[in-house]
Computed example of a mutant assay.
Amino acid sequence: MISKLIFIINLFYSGILLPQTVIKSNDDLQIHVSNFTETIIQISEYYYYNSQLNDADKILKPAIEITEQTGGKKYSAELLIQKAKINSINSFITNNSYEQSINDLNTAINYCKETNSTKLLGDAYNYLGFALYAQKYNQNLGTYEEALKYLNEAEQIRDEYKDLRGLAETYIYKGIVLERLGNNNEALELYSKANEICENNNFKLEQSYATRHIAFIKSYNKDFESALELFRKSLNLREEIGYKVYLPFSYLSVGNMYFELNRKNEAEEFYVKALTSALQNGAERVVVLCRMSLGDLYLSKNLYEKSLEEFTIALNISEKINFQRGINYSKEKINSLKKIQNQK
């Protein structure tokens, strides 16, 4: 499927494949480029939901070349933003570098300013804010304050244009950053605002995020029953819309709540689901999180050999992808388990 799409794109790019309508002016050309851009974004969004992130990248790269060639900077900006959004998520689940996504978004921001594409500029600021947040959270590069600065810019533009879906998304991202800064009450207020928008407008993807992060706040307050209900609601929404890319996180969070409630068999069931899904998606950072959760579960059952096996796998993957939190936690647990074994 991908190779066929790339073949069609290359034909279009080389001029061999021509539209049925003869292009007689630059205005005609821009209409065709606009339609082309919309189609590529829709296809890449399908791959994104289906966790085929590398496939999405493969069709976006040549598409950007086409729009660059035709002088459509606005359309190039749209594609660059889509590419950066998807690649930032890919980096989030694999612990790859965010540098290319950040560079793409800065280029898109310049194109938006040159073409007075203010609404699109809000999208670019939003995903730049997310990329900077994720880079800080996973790799300890940059600051949360810088991420928040761009999200504030995005909120202002999206509010001005009455972009309700966009506003809900930005509220969620801002809430996540505020969580990391320790402002849980402000974060909860933003998640609640986002959730209300989503419920009123049937924005199921964004609602899956809003309910998920309200659940985190509940879990911080030790209200694990309420958190479990919300995590399951978020999971159900993602399964309903086929949002496979983040299902491993959803399964993992449900498992964590069962673990906190001492329902360990159910916790293990969801940890295994999370691990299976993460392996299918090639999401190595999430695989580490699943392995560590299973390690903790087996440790709580005094299954020391199984626990050691999980933490050893987690450590090996963490070192491979340079995931420092995984390295530190796994090493700590492995050392503790070896001490237990030596005492026998």
Score class of each variant (00 low, 15 high):
Lys4Asp: 14
Leu5Ile: 15
Phe7Trp: 13
Ile9Gly: 02
Asn10Gly: 04
Leu11Ser: 06
Phe12Ala: 11
Gly15Val: 13
Ile16Arg: 10
Leu18Ser: 06
Thr21Met: 12
Lys24His: 12
Asn26Glu: 11
Asn26Arg: 12
Leu29Ser: 14
Ile31Ala: 11
His32Leu: 10
Ile40Val: 14
Ile41Lys: 10
Ile41Tyr: 09
Ile43Pro: 01
Ile43Ala: 04
Ile43Arg: 02
Ser44Met: 09
Ser44Gln: 04
Tyr49Arg: 15
Asn50Met: 07
Leu53Ser: 04
Asn54Lys: 03
Asp55Met: 08
Asp57Glu: 14
Ile59Glu: 01
Leu60Ala: 05
Ala63Val: 08
Ile66Pro: 00
Glu68Lys: 15
Gly71Cys: 15
Gly72Val: 03
Lys73Asp: 05
Ser76Ala: 12
Ser76Leu: 03
Ala77Val: 06
Glu78Gln: 07
Ser88His: 01
Ile89Gln: 04
Phe92Glu: 00
Asn96Pro: 00
Glu99Met: 05
Glu99Trp: 03
Gln100Arg: 10
Asp104Ile: 00
Asn106His: 09
Thr107Gly: 01
Thr107His: 15
Thr107Ile: 11
Thr115Pro: 02
Leu121Lys: 11
Tyr125Glu: 02
Asn126Ala: 12
Asn126Tyr: 02
Tyr127Ala: 01
Tyr127Ser: 01
Phe130Lys: 00
Phe130Tyr: 11
Asn138Ser: 07
Asn138His: 14
Asn140Glu: 15
Gly142Thr: 02
Thr143Ala: 06
Glu145Lys: 08
Glu146Gln: 13
Ala147Gln: 09
Lys149Ile: 05
Glu153Pro: 01
Glu153Arg: 15
Ala154Leu: 09
Gln156Val: 03
Asp159Pro: 00
Glu160Met: 07
Lys162Arg: 08
Gly166Ala: 10
Ala168Pro: 02
Thr170Trp: 02
Thr170Leu: 02
Tyr171Ser: 06
Gly175Asn: 08
Gly175Gln: 10
Gly175Ile: 11
Leu178His: 10
Glu179Gln: 15
Arg180Asp: 12
Leu181Glu: 05
Asn185Pro: 01
Leu190Cys: 03
Ala194Lys: 05
Asn195Lys: 14
Asn195His: 09
Cys198Phe: 08
Asn200His: 13
Leu205Tyr: 13
Ser208Gly: 07
Ser208Glu: 11
Tyr209Asn: 04
Tyr209Ser: 04
Ala210Ser: 14
Ala210Phe: 03
Arg212Gly: 05
Ile214Gln: 13
Phe216Lys: 12
Ser226Gly: 09
Ser226His: 14
Asn236Ala: 08
Arg238Pro: 00
Glu240Val: 06
Gly242Met: 05
Tyr243Gly: 00
Leu252Ala: 13
Ser253Lys: 15
Ser253Tyr: 09
Val254Tyr: 04
Val254Arg: 07
Met257Leu: 11
Tyr258Ala: 03
Asn262Thr: 13
Lys264Asp: 04
Glu268Phe: 14
Val272Trp: 06
Ala274Leu: 05
Ala274Cys: 02
Leu275Pro: 00
Leu275Ser: 04
Leu279Asp: 10
Asn281His: 06
Glu284Cys: 02
Glu284Lys: 07
Val287Lys: 13
Met292Gln: 13
Ser293Lys: 06
Leu297Ile: 13
Glu305Leu: 12
Lys306Met: 03
Glu309Leu: 15
Glu319Gly: 02
Phe323Tyr: 07
Phe323Met: 09
Phe323His: 10
Arg325Lys: 13
Tyr329Ser: 11
Ser330Gln: 14
Glu332His: 11
Glu332Gln: 15
Asn335Pro: 00
Asn335Thr: 06
Ser336Ile: 11
Lys339Trp: 04
Asn342Ile: 10
